[in-house]
Design a protein around this nucleic acid. Sequence first.
DNA 1: GCACTAAGTTCAAGCATTGAACGAATGAGG
DNA 2: CCTCATTCGTTCAATGCTTGAACTTAGTGC
Lengths: 379, 379
Amino acid sequence: MTTVDHLRQVRLGNLRTVLLALVDRPGSRADLATRTGLTKATLSNLTEPLLANGILIEDAATLAGMGRPSKPLRFHPDGPVAVGAEINVSHLAVETLGLDGETLRRHLVPTDIRTRSADDVLDQVADLVRSVTPSRPLLGVGLAVPGVVQEGMLVRAPNLPSLVGVPLARDLGRRLGLDVVLDNEANLAALAHLWPRHLAGEDFVHVSADVGIGAGVVLGGEVYRGASGFAGELGHVVIERNGVRCTCGSRGCVERYAGLDVILKEAGRRHLDSLARALDAGDPKALSAVAAAGEALGVGLATLMNLFDVPTVVLGGSYAVLHEHLSAAVQSEMDTRVLAGGERHTRLVASPLGEFAVVRGAAGLITRRAVQQPERLVA
Amino acid sequence: MTTVDHLRQVRLGNLRTVLLALVDRPGSRADLATRTGLTKATLSNLTEPLLANGILIEDAATLAGMGRPSKPLRFHPDGPVAVGAEINVSHLAVETLGLDGETLRRHLVPTDIRTRSADDVLDQVADLVRSVTPSRPLLGVGLAVPGVVQEGMLVRAPNLPSLVGVPLARDLGRRLGLDVVLDNEANLAALAHLWPRHLAGEDFVHVSADVGIGAGVVLGGEVYRGASGFAGELGHVVIERNGVRCTCGSRGCVERYAGLDVILKEAGRRHLDSLARALDAGDPKALSAVAAAGEALGVGLATLMNLFDVPTVVLGGSYAVLHEHLSAAVQSEMDTRVLAGGERHTRLVASPLGEFAVVRGAAGLITRRAVQQPERLVA
DNA sequence: GCACTAAGTTCAAGCATTGAACGAATGAGG
DNA sequence: CCTCATTCGTTCAATGCTTGAACTTAGTGC
């Protein structure tokens, strides 16, 4: 690596800093200079190719106050976008996201994936992606799946066996002629809380439940994936070593006490909506089922906190819907069991992103990469 | 940050690379150039101030083979060293470590710390540090304590209440006129397996038991500490949510089933040595006590592996001594409960470092910092 | 119109690595 | 003893991005 290469790295790093500042909000060169700590000269230099390439656009001068008016820069309204797609057990979803973090279009289609072939599903996903793609350059597609991902393939997915072993990223990429990145839905739901707007502000764990329970752990501003993509498997944290047998072969996994299927069964309900209504109506069976799940989840989360020591837990997915009736039990278990809890309370918050958190994270995977590796944008 | 500053950073980065190569083994400028990927010219340039400052020394030319003989460079035998110190419940220990990773002197003094004042203990630690310091520049002192550390202070230490809240790093630093860095013994034991020689080769968890159970988690070549230093509290991972009450306020913590005190009590022994002898003699009570602890530890470790997804577990401290009679139960629980286990087995190894692992890590904290931030060595 | 203010642009200076050329130190072969 | 081959280590011009100061541009206020 020559010195010249190092200097190019410096330039790319500064480019990233500037783009991150612009994701935060638009601003003139002078404004960006003060926000990034770079000089006005550097900002003129760095933004020039971004304007030439149609990534940024210069707004009309703003006539506010004394001195020469500033011309704010922002992401070009016809600039590149990313699409996120989600394949889940009972639905498909897609969303288009601009570099500025604005959602353009989104779409959710209920369908039972388990009865369909991989090819069939991918055809429909490709159609859905096309249907939400505006006539703007497409950076790539992020694809979310419920299971463990390794090298663009689903290697473990108890609820979607027909997709395991199929090179989903490659196959969808061929259909669309685009770069497709595959990742786990728990990781992507966590990413959606981190990018483009950091909703938690620091390290956090995002927990959600569908059929299984998945945790996306964010450490140092990055989703932590572990050595082989199995990190954050909160569903199989043991809370009773001689407890209920689990499909994974273990016993007493959190999932067997706090999984959505278990909650629904205990509450005598078929769907989340119906459960939510029963809770609001004060149905005792529903309330106790949710409270019991909260206790089990709290024990598992306490263990997680004692190992990861992150300050915040974000309840997402179904847990976000139930959080009003779930949080008390979770918080209570955590308060008694988390060591760090004594000094400064562990923050427990509900996700503000609705059912589109996962697709949003999937699209964010792509826009984030574009901003963090800006060489693709300038070249 | 000016471009000149950036280039200085590049230089420091390269200096670090060169020093890391030299920690691995000595080598001539040409050899180091090929090993680091830098050019001979750069190596001459980088090593010149290190030789001038007495950090490195040039050996006599080696007359091997054709061509101009090379003059190997290595760490100066009178160059700077670091001292590691450990304050534990029943002993004090110190060790001197050179930048090359060679242990120079070590010393262990059994003593019951609980009956003594912090000042008294620190006086003795200072004396011990002086007793193992050779007449060479001293980079600093790493100090290991059994408990949670924040900002140079022990904030939680159930077994050493008299030291909690005392600014140990500052007070020992004043006594010695040196920079003192305080850290948790579990973290430092893990560090000893990572620096100066990486004994595991990749990410790993180091687990050891004294009164409590501590895990040092190494992710990406760094000890993971968490937001407030509480990370890796394996001892308080829950394995039976309605189990035995723990001093921490929770129930069913691993520590209550696999702590050394529990093992000794169940085996009817007073000391680790006596237990080890009983195990070798085939004492059934001792064997079953250790196997039971192994089961509980295995459940806790399985949970840890499902959250962190690291490929290797290193059993250290007392567990290393017991590992022959402990590993089978641990491995068995992990095999049934770790998700990633199916594909590639989780490696379970015993630490090759004996009772000096913690002090070695404490000293390594200092030598490692010196190598990774070489500006202190050149200035 | 003129002074004032702030935005944006121009330009020489500064530095660590590189690669090629060079000097140094030895072994092999005659 | 001399020369050639070989390898080690050193010298030196070229390179490119940010900086800060000076400068230009484009407004406001009186």
